[in-house]
Design a protein around this nucleic acid. Sequence first.
DNA 1: CCTACCGATCGGTAGG
DNA 2: CCTACCGATCGGTAGG
Lengths: 207, 207
Amino acid sequence: MTKATTDKRQGRPRGQSGHDRRAQIIEVATALFREKGYHVTSLDDIADRIGFTKPAIYYYFKSKEDVLFAIVSGIADEALARFRAIAQGPGTAGERIHALLVENTRTILRNPDANAVFYNERGLLSPEREQQMRRREREYTRIMRDLYAEGVASGELLDIDPAVATSTLLGASIWSYRWFNPKGRLSADEAAEQITRLLLHGYRLDR
Amino acid sequence: MTKATTDKRQGRPRGQSGHDRRAQIIEVATALFREKGYHVTSLDDIADRIGFTKPAIYYYFKSKEDVLFAIVSGIADEALARFRAIAQGPGTAGERIHALLVENTRTILRNPDANAVFYNERGLLSPEREQQMRRREREYTRIMRDLYAEGVASGELLDIDPAVATSTLLGASIWSYRWFNPKGRLSADEAAEQITRLLLHGYRLDR
DNA sequence: CCTACCGATCGGTAGG
DNA sequence: CCTACCGATCGGTAGG
């Protein structure tokens, strides 16, 4: 369908470096997995869009699942690093939670496709890898929950169950990958600002 | 694996009525689609768990997609009916939005599996059916957006983009299907109360 | 609602 | 990185 104009010689990759090719496979796979889902996307689909044939992918990845894992673990690593850095930073618990939400939302809105793949398809990984992702996620959830509990104890934050608060705030932030339109009138950072302001103050102006 | 103890005679269904059987297929499919995903679940998996063989499913459904559609459209119908009823009910815009969020969250938490299937797998429907679901979703999003805009105009609600507000509030509500544990210490209604209170007031106590 | 059974798709590999 | 090609899975159907 999308016939490549690239000539298909034999042997090793040429032109682009191995790193670029690998990155290109991840990029194309991310778009396709987001669009059609992991199982509906065949390795031929990915190869076609690049101008490859399927076995080329096996030069860079051991399996289809490895391609998914590369996308998903990249997102998890970024998120965890972000949470750790901010949690250890300055400010009250409430201020750090706000910083966490702003940064998290911005990052998601700047790269909605990979985040969609992370949240939609990571359940399709092998049990071991899924567990690995779950552990990463539990860790950054725990970071935020502890922060929230601290803020409740000091009287700075609304007194509800910290686990419920954390999941709800993060959920509102994460959910943005589903509706945000990068080509819409709001930029990623503008949308992130409005989302986090809403979470901070609530929607009701009862003052 | 899960070998059925039911005897497998020929002919039409016995014991349970046709309606029950159909409902049973939907129930089992919902659990499996939620657990493993639509494509990883085979019709044999569904039939096995009931004590059937695969062709029995074709007595009640024309295709595998029809089973998914039954689950997904059921959820969409419920949600739309709920939104319409509350939007036309009494109260200020802010009060109706609150009622909407409470009801929506409760309903999701009382039936997280079917809602998970709705949000995770509806993209796998045929283009026509996916469009149909999208239209339903757009309609109830529009109902809430209009309500939010009304509340902003009257000065009752936080002045941010109504579309952003709507998606974020609904997202926080919907996301609950992902983390809520029906066997945990909080009941569905208790969790719904905390979630909606957080959205209403925000997490920061700055009074 | 069961016993076969077909056909197509697709991940993965051989061998270069 | 390409040309074949294999094997398994699985939705769906025939015929009862």
